[in-house]
């Protein structure tokens, strides 16, 4: 039982750190990438993974309770909606006539 508790604490810490890392990656991408399409790509992938790890840590911390199950549902909701929103935004950019960045262009 004691070993199980230690493993759970270790997993919580590891998931939180992974979540922080992937959110950092997504922040770097949103700040550094050259145009809205490439930024939408980090926002939908790295950020969803970061949020997923963060919420997984929360679910592990709370455990088998209604709130823990709620945080798992929240995780799935984020997994579905985050890429959808990024897609809608990229599509809006395309319909407004934003030309995708290619090598050699000026960074925007």
């Amino acid at each position: 039982m004691e070993a199980l508790g230690t493993a759970r604490v270790a997993l919580v810490v590891a998931f939180t750190l992974l979540g922080l890392f992937f959110t950092f990656v997504s922040m770097t991408g949103v700040l550094r990438l050259p145009d809205v399409y490439s930024r939408a790509h980090t926002a939908s992938q790295a950020d969803t993974l970061g949020a997923g790890f963060g919420l997984a840590a929360v679910a592990l911390t709370i455990g088998w309770e209604a709130a823990g199950i709620k945080s798992v549902l929240l995780l799935f909701f984020i997994f579905v909606t985050n890429p959808t929103a990024a897609h809608a935004i990229a599509r809006a950019a395309f319909e407004e006539g934003t030309v995708p960045w290619t090598e050699g262009d000026e960074r925007r």
């Binding site: 959110t23 922040m27 949103v30 926002a43 950020d47 969803t48 949020a51 919420l55 985050n82």
Partner: peptide, 13 residues
């Protein structure tokens, strides 16, 4: 919008 969306996901976490 993209930045605020990412920010919002971050706030949820």
């Amino acid at each position: 919008v993209l930045a605020v969306n990412v920010l919002g996901t971050n706030t949820v976490v």
